[in-house]
Design a protein around this nucleic acid. Structure first.
Length: 570
RNA sequence: CGGGAUGUAGCGCAGUCUGGUAGCGCACCUGCUUCGGGAGCAGGGGGCCGGAGGUUCAAAUCCUCUCAUCCCGACCA
């Protein structure tokens, strides 16, 4: 491709509404342009990177035996009503009506549609195992789209769905996809981890997320420093501490704490540490039930664990009115002593003695609280958010914490959708069997964005070669000098003949601008063709990754570069 | 949905307080010079100042409403 004929407008200045590096760089490098909140145009340079990732995904899906299909983006409400998700899914599902007032939605995921495909086409166990995938535009009306392609409302996703006769075979399909995912992200040149994850809205029995490690990641993950355990903090388990509870030594007594509500305020007012305090959270479920949860002062609630325990789908902090009604005090003074509310405590609280807690009266706390003596507790449970330094639930190790970008997610679905939609086959005994499903997603745009997040410097993008829009950039220092331009043209032709993807910067621009653009665009290999080198019959090769420069003889440059590219892709 | 902020040329911004011819830098077009790390000079094109009402002789500027965008939180495969 000739730059002079290409649509690639770079920006010197960073657009004001881009926060993170990948978003800023994708805008500056002319990869994407915003159309509306969370909705983007993919310009030629950006689309090439997208297509690279798609191609890698395709190759690995095919290798794993999956078959490509394409389902519609507009899906009839009927199908979603069959699975029950029309009501469940919430406002993220963009619902719309056609001229006859028939309900549709923009597909945010395609379990219903693919299950419909299978129930209509698969009759026999002989057609199994089956794995269907597509690469398609999805729409989710996110509450807060942000960070460019990282969290768009419209986004490109690869979604695959496996169908098997029984659970054991479904497990094998899951494992196959798991391995395919490892290969995909390795080929994309990403540093990532597969972590245990919550299944959320999709449902099913177990799942793993593939997390690209990056400071800007929206997810927190923990991993063991000794064993292979790694999990999203939403999911990360914490076992009851083995140490025995300390013995009560103090008597229960009230103390005035005027205006001291937050953990910070109380601990500094009383001169204690947050570890000596128990905080009492008053929570409400989506079904209207109120419940109190006890946590050590420096810990945070994991709402997902609590939901799982209570069997509800949402909990939120109770508002002031409810707190006043349930505890008899304004918020900030709730405590477990004498509280007439369903009361749960995190395991860790079991080991605490003589702690401080609210007294359910305004401006008052208790000192010397001891659970066994002073409190009526329903149960202990794993309720807090895991963090760095916590013990590993699988071994003797300690957890480390990281930020991650979720680029892939694999789920074991069981029969949730096949049962609801009646996707069955006849087995070798002629019996009707409900299919076991799995589903497997990859955010294509997000993968490109996270690759940039992980591979950039102050000058611009540093594309990993396998997903770079072009492999080689030829910078023609002065295209007006005939011999220079001619040498560049010859190289360009040779590289193309060797099937190297090359962008020829033949623009009539000053060299400085071209070099700056080259750094910004992040094409891995840059050849500089100028009169200076040509005097020696040489061109300069510079690698974007480490800035290393070397001179190549003009006659051998193309074949050497083709060799470098081939090696990088193998 | 709660809190905060911002909408002026493709991008970054000034002008708004104190109403009076819509500006600057980058980008874009023309010409000349320049040419190995974002050149210089000269000339030029491009704006319903987010939208709708209102106040006023006069509104980018004041008032009301509205829409959009961004940040924090809640939320989220």
């Amino acid at each position: 491709m000739r730059y002079s004929r290409y649509l690639l407008t770079t920006l010197k200045e960073t657009p004001a509404d881009a926060e993170i590096a990948s978003h800023q760089l994708m805008l500056r490098a002319g990869m994407i342009r915003k159309v509306a909140a969370g909705i983007y145009n993919y310009l030629p340079f950006g689309l090439r990177a997208i297509r690279k990732v798609e191609q890698i995904v395709r190759e690995e899906m095919e290798r794993a035996g999956a078959l490509e299909i394409l389902m519609p983006m507009v899906v009839p409400a009927e199908l979603w009503q069959e699975s029950g998700r029309w009501e469940q899914y919430g406002r993220e599902l963009l619902r719309l009506q056609d001229r006859k007032d028939t309900g549709f939605c923009l597909g945010p995921t395609h379990e219903e549609v693919v299950t419909d495909v299978v129930r209509n086409t698969v009759r026999s166990y002989r057609q199994l195992p089956l794995n269907l995938y597509q690469i398609q535009t999805k729409f989710r009306d996110e509450i807060r789209p942000r960070f460019g392609l990282m969290r768009g409302r419209e986004f490109i996703m690869k979604d695959a769905y496996s169908f098997d006769l029984d659970e054991a075979e479904a497990d094998m399909a899951y494992e196959k996809m798991f391995q395919a995912y490892r290969r995909i992200f390795e080929r994309c040149g990403l540093k990532f981890r597969a972590v245990e994850a919550d299944t959320g809205n999709i449902g099913g029995s177990s799942s793993h997320e593939f997390m690209v490690l990056a400071e800007s990641g929206e997810d927190a993950i923990v991993s063991c420093d000794l064993c292979a355990y790694a999990a999203n903090v939403e999911k990360a388990e914490l076992l009851p501490a083995s140490m025995a509870a300390s013995k009560p030594a103090e008597a229960l007594r009230r103390v005035a704490t005027p205006g001291q509500r937050s953990v910070e305020e109380i601990t500094s007012f009383l001169g204690i540490t947050p570890q000596q305090l128990v905080k009492t959270l008053i929570l409400q479920t989506d079904e209207g039930e109120s419940v109190a949860v006890l946590l050590r002062g420096d810990r945070e609630l994991n709402a997902i664990k609590l939901c799982r325990l209570l069997g509800c789908s949402e909990v939120s902090l109770a508002d002031e009115e409810v707190v006043q009604r349930e505890t008899g005090a304004p918020s900030g003074f709730a405590g477990p002593v004498g509280l007439r509310l369903r009361l749960l405590a995190d395991h860790e609280v079991a080991a605490m003695a003589d702690f401080v807690a609210g007294a359910n009266a305004e401006d008052t706390h208790y000192l010397g609280v001891n659970l066994q003596r002073d409190v009526v507790l329903e149960n202990f449970a794993d309720l807090r958010l895991a963090g760095a330094g916590d013990p590993c639930p699988r071994c003797e190790g300690r957890l480390e914490s990281w930020r991650g970008i979720e680029v892939g997610h694999v789920f074991k679905l069981g029969t949730k959708y096949s049962e609801a939609l009646g996707a069955t086959v006849l087995d070798d005994q002629g019996r009707e069997r409900v299919l076991f499903m799995g589903c497997y997603g990859i955010g294509i745009g997000r993968t490109v964005a996270s690759a940039i997040e992980q591979n950039h410097d102050k000058n611009g993008i540093v594309f990993p070669l396998p997903i770079a829009p072009f492999q080689v950039l030829i910078t023609v220092v002065n295209p007006k000098e005939q011999d220079v331009m001619q040498a560049a043209e010859v190289l360009y032709g040779e590289l193309q003949a060797l099937e190297v993807e090359v962008l020829l910067d033949d623009r009539d621009e000053r060299p400085g601008s071209k070099f700056k653009d080259a750094d910004l665009l992040g094409i891995p290999l840059r050849l500089t063709v100028g009169s200076r080198g040509l005097k020696e019959q040489a061109v300069e090769l510079q690698r974007r990754s480490n800035g290393e420069r070397s001179l190549l003889p003009l006659a051998e440059a193309a074949s050497q570069l083709a060799g470098i590219v081939r090696q990088a892709l193998s």
